[in-house]
Write a protein that binds this DNA or RNA. Structure first.
Ligand SMILES: NC(=O)c1ccc[n+]([C@@H]2O[C@H](COP(=O)([O-])OP(=O)(O)OC[C@H]3O[C@@H](n4cnc5c(N)ncnc54)[C@H](O)[C@@H]3O)[C@@H](O)[C@H]2O)c1
Ligand SMILES: NC(=O)c1ccc[n+]([C@@H]2O[C@H](COP(=O)([O-])OP(=O)(O)OC[C@H]3O[C@@H](n4cnc5c(N)ncnc54)[C@H](O)[C@@H]3O)[C@@H](O)[C@H]2O)c1
Lengths: 235, 235
DNA sequence: CCCACTTTGTGCATCGGTTCACAAAGGGAC
DNA sequence: GTCCCTTTGTGAACCGATGCACAAAGTGGG
């Protein structure tokens, strides 16, 4: 029993492809601004930093939007990718936790551009509540549920301390939110059907450090085989 | 001709594993603080949000550090993972671009904790240069090369506008830097051997939007098959 | 209208990563 | 010392993603 209507059209886009579509979109927008009408998979792949076969396969999952011998129509492809990603509608985003990071995010113009609108800022600190940031009033976390409903929030950005993140997540999920972007360094436990994406600076640095160490080890002829547990450390 | 000395010991840790080690480390630190002496793969996997077979395979790439029937010694494992990740040495990090985001990063205590030290802040804006942030003087971007050398910087965090990122990257790479964490929404082009990790808020939101759209589509009985190019858009 | 050239879309081999499932190893009780 | 219980470490099947390589499709020139 094989289920396969048309190669891959019936709504089954690989996760890896989805993660690259925004990259293509950004490259295409640059080309659109520079007035290019069409682009080949080779050129677009170069601009997006991927291999051209991969790009073509990715795009083929959306449909057959290219013209052989010519390439892809820039504006048309922008439209198709935007539609696929859901950027033709606008998304109300709430930022919870308006500290260092929350403020930077609120003031950031970069994502308002593409369908995302910061619709609410929430914090627990009475010192912060009431502040006006990027044209928005910071509201009290007690208002969380009401604000989500009132503003039609569908994506929540968590920028609270780690200790508060799970508890805030539970509350927004109870309110029906199923998309969360988490900056707090904790593993959130959420029910099936809720999408969490995490951004973790510290993890990124640790991965860089791993490779950096390896590069310098290689130059100095490998580590001095210090495999042993040093005496100094108490168990 | 098969090259295989000891299962996987000779320095070949899968990338996916490396990306998870910081997660295990964080979970282990929590356990250490709570005074746990040993932990089973089952419990640690739960805390890190992964499946226990994966956890065991990941750890097996570092060596055979568990005890069958017992589990892993928490402190010992913390030490081994830290060493593998290169966190037993300290890394001098420079942040280039001290705007909204750069400031938040500079003020963030969370990564100083684990082997990373913000050693320099640089900006091009004369208004910003000279500011004192988190105990550091913001220096002028003209000093970039000198500062990197003087402070022994080995990891650079890019928090400049997109337009400046490539140019700054070129300069730090010329100075010998091979590890860059990039927050600017551009594809950096760098020579072989230079590691770039990127953090892109906008991409994360777009991925969430994609899934969110799909979830709501499903509830409303799928998209209204609006496959066509709407009239309004000019080509 | 036909031919030469360009570029897409995809079948297929390959690869890295995940998961299952179990033999081997160690601990503790008696 | 033996037996039973727990938990690791890993072989092997599986799965999704990557990249090669080429047939099919379309363009433009003569
Ligand atoms: N600043 C960075 O560069 C950075 C980098 C990586 C990760 N992070 C993480 O992002 C999160 C925020 O970092 P930050 O530097 O902005 O911290 P911060 O302390 O400056 O801000 C946290 C804010 O959250 C508020 N808050 C606390 N509990 C709350 C609750 N229950 N509900 C709502 N708001 C609450 C606090 O009042 C504060 O305003 C932290 O988890 C941090 O680990 C920050
Ligand atoms: N703020 C956010 O939440 C956020 C989120 C995602 C991505 N980003 C990206 O991070 C980057 C920084 O964002 P931001 O909000 O802090 O912007 P910002 O404009 O507040 O800060 C940028 C800083 O870089 C400095 N700068 C400009 N050119 C420079 C150069 N050649 N060398 C050194 N410094 C230079 C500017 O003087 C300014 O201080 C941008 O690329 C932005 O797209 C920001």
């Amino acid at each position: 029993m094989i289920r396969r209507l048309s190669q891959a059209r019936e709504r089954g886009i690989p996760e890896a492809t989805v993660a690259r579509l925004p990259l293509y979109l950004r490259a295409l927008n640059g080309m659109s601004e520079r007035g290019l009408a069409t682009v080949s998979s080779e050129d677009l792949a170069l601009a997006a930093g991927v291999n051209s076969a991969k790009l073509r396969k990715d795009l083929s999952h959306l449909g057959s939007y290219g013209t052989r011998g010519v390439g892809y129509d820039v504006e048309y492809l922008i439209y198709q990718i935007s539609r696929e990603l859901g950027l033709t509608q606008d998304w109300a985003v709430a930022i919870v936790g308006v500290g260092n990071l929350g403020r930077a995010l609120a003031n950031y113009g970069g994502f308002v551009s593409r369908g995302f609108r910061v619709a609410a800022l929430l914090d627990a600190d009475p010192e912060v509540v009431g502040d006006r940031i990027a044209g928005l009033n910071v509201e009290h976390i007690d208002e969380l549920e009401a604000v989500i409903r009132r503003r039609g929030v569908s994506i929540v950005v968590l920028a609270t301390p780690a200790a508060a993140a799970q508890q805030v997540a539970d509350r927004v999920i109870a309110e029906g939110i199923t998309s969360i972007l988490n900056f707090a360094p904790v593993v959130l436990s959420v029910p099936e059907g809720v999408d969490i994406r995490k951004v973790d600076l510290s993890i990124e640095l640790q991965i860089l450090a791993f490779h950096e160490q390896r590069k310098t080890d290689r130059m100095t002829g490998g580590p001095a085989m210090a495999e042993e547990w040093p005496e100094a450390v108490d168990l």
